[in-house]
Design a protein around this nucleic acid. Structure first.
Lengths: 304, 304
DNA sequence: TGCAATACTTGATTTAGTCAAGTATTGCAG
DNA sequence: CTGCAATACTTGACTAAATCAAGTATTGCA
């Protein structure tokens, strides 16, 4: 059972369970090739018929016929290329985009039904590993660092809870703490002095988080770096460094004079990262937290 | 970009890159449905045509025709059901099995070509995440614990190196150490007193390893638990406990009086597991190893 | 005993896909 | 600027897979 057999094995399971091979695509009346073609038409600029055919490995004749059908149904507009009138650049119309949305919903429903037995947690785990696979299949692209969007806070809570429970044995009280921290952050909504970053894979799954928060009114010049988490599969890639830099840069620009953070001694890789970024260990004390014996650490550095 | 969109997105990337949709299956002259049908015929007992059709979502008429073709080419034998002569139980012949092997090789070649740009490490990573996905899609099954097979030692070395480099920052000297330990183990080949276990997912990927080795001639009654590793995604599932029990059970049966192990303080979850299994910390000392400052720990317990 | 249900098979038809030829246009060597 | 190969797409003829419906032999059961 080598790597290739594992992949073959997956293909069979996947096509079987997710029914990728379904003819007459999801009852939408469109054939699979038509659906794929329509999807590939959804690009900002004009599209060439040949590009589409080659991109999908479809026969050009067949492509031509399918496109004729789309034009008849008003899903695409075929314009005339001024410079070369052999070509007929294609544009998706509003009707075409609407049809694409119909398709998207049908496909979402089908996947939701097929994955219903997995439950929400299983679905999230599946999405996570499949998106990892997407990343591996695509030419490598660096993760995106972006601000917080709706739904991110929940993800941050869920991943903190899951990973700390697995790796450190933390109990539910840790999830509650993370939820409280985030709830307060969102409530304060102090965008000038506080910010969160989400690292996101090219496919869109969350790879990590970091937050810059105010230490509190009694220490207005101190910023706190919090909820710093990198998914295991994204560790050792330099992503953590990028995220720390984003956080430090924001804190300095927001006028803080120091940045402080709180961690546990067991996070050795994190400790090395903090040390590399000018933080120094300023306090350390054993404590009992989240059902475990831990050694709390406080690190601090000055900001430029 | 929610979970379902991530899955949709993966499906597109995957079918595009791995070309699942290839008609005329891989130049073997068989259509995709024929290949899938032939594959599903490969089961120990007799198979019913209807089962096959329903299992693959194929039309019964079409199934009948394809099966007639298989029978004509001598790939299947159609017997007569004594109790119900409407049914014609199907059996794959040797020729059919040979054809299946042709198909398997063609499919392997196709995957190997499609994944060539990823390199060996990328392929291994892809196989790993896709097999995780297979596990998630299947009804849950517990991992299998088995002895060492050819190729396992290499995997054990590779995963130790990769995970410790990622999580602890160990350098290459750690990989060398693991390789030496395993080479010596394989060379001694002392099956009565030493053994290794591999935990394997239902799909077949390695989920973890543990070894029972002799401490050495100067301490013949002491066994050492070594190379204990659980893949991150398999942590917190009780697998580690099963593996420790297997190792302890073997050591006791092999006549050892004590079991000893060596770890680092930073592996807190492992430490808790050892404590739960009767081990006590007997020595602890800071050391510099594999390019890191660590705190070596020795744990020990008596065997029944 | 008769009749619906089952386990397939066969026939008629549709349709996606293939291959090759056809049309209009472009680019470029002579 | 002429002619001819190349390009971008279309069209026609054909193949084969898939679908739908009807057909056959057999079973089970009221």
């Amino acid at each position: 059972m080598d790597d290739i057999d594992l992949i073959r094995n997956f293909s069979r399971t996947y096509t079987h369970r997710l029914g990728l091979l379904s003819k007459s695509y999801l009852g939408s009346g469109l054939a699979l090739s038509e659906a794929r073609l329509l999807h590939d038409l959804d690009r900002p600029g004009p599209v060439r018929a040949r590009e589409l055919a080659q991109g999908l490995g479809l026969d050009e004749g067949q492509t031509s016929r399918i496109l004729a059908g789309f034009a008849r149904r008003g899903w695409i507009r075929r314009t005339r290329d001024e410079a070369d009138s052999r070509q007929r650049p294609l544009h998706l119309t509003e009707a075409g985009r609407a049809q694409l949305e119909v398709l998207r919903l049908a496909s979402r429903t089908a996947i939701a039904e097929a994955t219903a037995p997995l439950g929400a947690a299983g679905l999230a785990a599946l999405a996570r590993v499949l998106d990892q696979a997407s990343d591996l299949l695509r030419p490598p692209q660096p993760p995106l660092l972006r601000g917080l969007l709706p739904g991110d806070a929940g993800q941050v809570i869920a991943r903190h809870a899951a990973l700390y429970a697995r790796d450190e044995g933390y109990d539910q009280s840790f999830e509650a703490l993370v939820a409280e921290i985030l709830a307060a952050f969102l409530t304060r909504n102090d965008t000038a002095r506080e910010r969160g970053w989400i690292a996101q894979s090219p496919g869109g799954r969350m790879l990590g988080s970091v937050f810059c928060m105010a230490e509190g009114p009694e220490a207005p010049q101190i910023a706190r770096l919090r909820l710093f988490l990198i998914e295991p599969e994204a560790r050792g890639t330099g992503l953590a460094q990028r995220m720390i830099e984003a956080c430090l840069g924001f804190a300095a620009a927001a006028g803080y004079r120091q940045m402080r953070l709180w961690t546990h001694e067991s996070h050795q890789a994190a400790g090395r990262l903090y040390a590399r970024n000018g933080f120094a260990l300023v306090a350390s004390a054993p404590a009992r937290a989240f059902g475990c014996e831990v050694i709390d650490q406080t690190w601090q550095r000055d900001l430029p």
